[in-house]
Amino acid sequence: MTDSVTPRPAADRSPAAVDAAVGAGRDLGLTVTDAKVLYDMFSVVVHLAPAPVVARVPTVLPHSTDPGSLARRQQAELDVARWLADQGTPVIPPSPLVPREPVQRDGFSMTFWQFVEEDRDKEPDYVANSEVVADLHAAMRAYPGGLSFLSSAEPLFITEGLAYLEERPDLIGPADLDRAGREWRVLEPLVRSRAAFEAAYPGIDLQPIHGDTPPANIFPGVDGDLYADFELVTLGPVEWDLAGMGPEGASAYDRGARRNGMRPLDEDVLRFANAVGMLRAIACLSLVPQLPVLVDYITPAIAQWRETPFAGGATG
């Protein structure tokens, strides 16, 4: 790979990602004759049929992403998912048929996972999923590997995304962007520094967490639900994983926490997590040139954000 991950035109990136996944799979000894794309948004997810292996190939990435940081993030995901699977936690595990490490090919970095048949008739229940996230947190507490504090917030991406949007008033208006910038000046120190976070929220324990909205990343397998997509696994407060789930999701999580002998969500920290998560969503508008559909998801959220307290009530 080169020293940077260069965005590809939308029409080219999915076929190129599939070709790279098929070629890498074959190089690793897999029989691949009928590759099928299962999902295509931020990543292209390919079943390398008939091998029981799925390749996940990130394709929509911040301009600041470099091959080294992407590979480190992918290795952390593989390590956590494998450890959880070894403990008996219901996760989609890395494929045992290939080395458990990222593979680089044709400018892409990809990981390989065990194929699981999806129950396509099951509708997602985000409230029920929020409750079982507490079970995941209970399982993750003992993870022995090292993780960075709130790396899933991607502070460099937020900073660079907001700067990019200064030149794109068609994506977000000046007043909204001004507020986002002022909020980020308050919240960024709490994201970048564990010590600053702990000073602002004393007594809040930190632990390994999923990092990327786990209630929305529970895979409905035909033999049962599985936790999935640990791409942004990190060290942080459990509240981070419940950002955006609303009061019902928070109440459901608290039920699961009590069942596991864990503390309930802290309202101040949850507001912090919601506020940072919203700024990360706004920064994602900088990815619209790569993925235009993002406008449809983010614009309604901005309208709701305007009605919330500044920076989630944080004062820095």
Rank of each mutant, 00 (worst) to 15 (best):
L187K: 12
Y143A: 04
I158F: 13
L162H: 04
D205L: 07
M140L: 15
R194H: 02
L171M: 08
R194Q: 15
L206K: 07
Y143H: 11
R179M: 05
R185L: 13
R194A: 14
L190I: 06
D135V: 06
D170P: 03
N129T: 04
E166M: 08
L136A: 11
A200K: 05
V132C: 12
D176F: 02
L165K: 08
T159A: 11
D178L: 13
W184L: 06
A199M: 10
R185E: 15
A180P: 04
F157K: 10
M140Q: 11
D170Y: 00
F197G: 04
V132W: 01
F197M: 11
L171N: 08
R192K: 13
V191C: 09
M140Y: 08
G211Q: 06
E188F: 02
E160A: 11
V191M: 08
A142V: 13
G203E: 13
R141S: 09
T213P: 00
L190K: 02
D205P: 00
A134G: 04
P208W: 07
E131P: 02
G173N: 14
G181M: 05
I172W: 06
A180D: 05
S130G: 09
I209K: 07
R194S: 05
L136V: 12
E167D: 15
P144V: 13
V132Q: 14
P174F: 06
I209P: 03
I209E: 03
G173D: 15
L150T: 04
A153C: 14
D170K: 05
A180V: 03
E166L: 12
E188H: 10
L165E: 01
P174Y: 09
S148I: 01
